[in-house]
Structures are given as C-alpha cells and as structure tokens.
C-alpha cells in the first residue's frame, strides 16, 4: 500500500513537472510568435491574408443571415418613424431640387471653363461593389472584411466609400477577400482639405467614433459645420470624397470631425479603383495606368 502511494506521489510529481514544462514551452512559443510578427512583418501580412482567404467563405455564410436579421430590426425601427421621415424627406427633396439646378448650372460652366483652360482631368475612377462579410472591430481595431480581393481588381491603398462618404482604405488584400481599415482606426492618417477654406490638414483616427484634425496651419479658420473632403495627396485617393464635418472646434488644437459614413450600419461598400493605386508620394504628374479588370459601374 505504502509503495503504491509513493508511486502515485512520484507519478503526480512527474506529471506536474511535465505540465509546468509544457506551460513554459507554450509561453515561449507565444512570445516567439509575437517576436516573429514584430521582426518579419511581411510574413505576418502574408499569414493574415491566407487566414482571411480561408475564413472569408465561412464568414460569408454567417454574414448573410446576420445581415437579414439586422435589416429586419432596422426595418422595424424605421416603421415606427415612417410618418416623420416622410415629411422630413419631402422637405429635403424640395431643398435638394434647388441644389440640383445650381449644380447643373455650375457643371456646365465648369466644363466650359475647363475647355478654355485646356485642363487635363485625372484618371476616371471605377467602382467595385463589395459586401461586408466580417467586422474586425475590437477595442484595438476598427475595420471590416470584404468579399472581394485581388481577383476583382482590389489593391492595397484604395479608397472605400459608402453612399454618405469615405469609410476607409484597403489595408490587406487576399485572392477573394480584403480588409478595410476604417478612418476611425488609430492607425488611419488621411490627407484632407477643408472644403470651405481649401486648407490642407491630416485627419487621424483614434478608435473613437470621432476623428481628429491635426497638422492644421491655423486652427482659427475652422468653423463648426465645415465639410472635410479628401485632398487626393498621396495619389491613391480621388479628390473631393466627403469624409465628415467639423463638430467641435475645441480650445487649443483639437478639432473633432464626425465621419459621414455610418459604421454601425455598413452592409455594402464600394472600393474606388482610381487606376493609380500604389502611387504614394513621388511625382504627382501621373500617367494613368491601365486600370485592372474590375466590375465597372460608372
């Protein structure tokens, strides 16, 4: 009996020793993965892309019913405020019709002026419509996964827009999937213009719902309600995509911007294929390269 107890004690000691050793190995392996990720970012990017491509069919299967459920909930909510919405929209329609007239007149005028000045337009953008199949929203990232990839002509750095305005840019591309980094992400830096003053600035995200306008030459010129549009500097973004409006000019240097895109209700987005993606910095005299085969809408 005593021998058996001794044996059991020794056996359990050995077992705990092995367990402890295993834990140490696992911890070392986890740290190793982190260090490799830090040292070899290209390898990690590649692994991310492979993981995305593998996961995206599964996610797409999950995304459809989830989207349907989301839509039903949204429909029910809208149903409650149908009457007020109708009245508001009718009023807005009248206002917009007036704007349309103005816009038509300006467009004609603009075209004639361009003809006079022999102005060469930038390459025409085409759109790739994509479904959002996954959110990569956590406490640290603001982004989403799309069901289109390199095969459809998506490339890293392209702009992603919704009906309301700019949503973000393509960060990683797989064969049939891509990851969008929203403008609200802490890693997002966007060259923009203040539409009214044509002043350049950088719009930075900080993972909160609002954006921060920085590197302004003068904060004093910014007013609440100013629209912020992309400036096109850097080359891969078209000029003049609406991004947001200034909601808080703040004291000191913090100007807060509310993005137009509603990130909580995104389902479909458009990837803007501007034909010059990949051109970051360098000479601004662009030679429009042949745009890759994408789903052309415009």
């Amino acid at each position: 009996m005593a021998i058996r107890d001794d044996f059991e004690i020794v056996a359990s000691q050995v077992r705990t020793a092995v367990q402890r050793f295993a834990l140490g190995l696992l911890v070392i392996a986890a740290f190793g993965a982190m260090l490799v990720g830090k040292a070899d970012t290209i390898l990690v990017e590649h692994a991310r892309v492979v993981a995305l491509d593998l996961a995206s069919p599964v996610l797409e299967a999950i995304a459809r019913p989830v989207a349907a459920a989301n839509r039903i909930i949204a429909d029910l909510k809208e149903f409650a405020s149908l009457r007020e919405d109708n009245a508001r929209l009718r009023e807005e329609n009248v206002r917009l019709l007036a704007w349309q007239t103005a816009a038509r007149r300006l467009e004609n005028e603009n075209e004639r002026m361009r003809g006079l000045a022999n102005f060469r337009e930038g390459p025409e953008a085409s759109f790739i419509t994509a479904r959002i199949v996954g959110d990569s929203v956590s406490a640290y990232v603001r982004g989403a996964l799309l069901n289109v990839g390199r095969k459809a002509g998506v490339a890293s750095g392209q702009a992603v827009v919704t009906g309301e305005g700019l949503a973000g840019r393509i960060a990683e591309v797989g064969e049939n999937s891509a990851r969008v980094l929203f403008v609200t992400d802490v890693n997002s830096r966007l060259p923009v213009l203040i539409e009214r003053t044509r002043e350049r600035a950088i719009l930075a995200g900080d993972n909160s719902p609002q954006l921060r306008l920085s590197l302004l030459q003068s904060v004093a010129g910014v007013q609440r309600g100013d629209r912020i549009v992309t400036s096109g500097h850097g080359g891969s973004f078209p000029v003049g995509i609406p991004v947001g409006e200034v909601v808080d000019t703040g004291e000191g240097s913090s100007v807060r911007v509310r993005p137009f895109a509603d990130f909580s209700r995104l389902e479909f987005v458009r990837v803007v294929d501007y034909g010059v993606s990949g051109l970051v910095g360098g000479n601004s005299a662009t030679t429009p390269s042949a745009p890759p085969a994408g789903v052309r809408i415009r």
Binding site: L23, A30, G37, A47, R48, Y140
Partner: peptide
C-alpha cells in the same frame, strides 16, 4: 496547449490590425 496556441494565433491574425502583436491571445489562452 498547442491547439490553444494555434487558435490564439488564428484569432490574432483574423482580428488584428496592422502592427498588433500576433500571439498575444495565444499567450492569454494558454
């Protein structure tokens, strides 16, 4: 443990933004 390691790394790869550490969830799981 090795399965947790793989799952954690997969989670980090799928979720992580640029520059986020890959393997921290694996460490947490373990």
């Amino acid at each position: 443990g090795p399965l947790l390691l793989v799952m954690g790394i997969l989670l980090d790869l799928l979720l992580g933004g640029p520059g986020a550490p890959v393997g921290v969830s694996a460490l947490g799981f373990v």
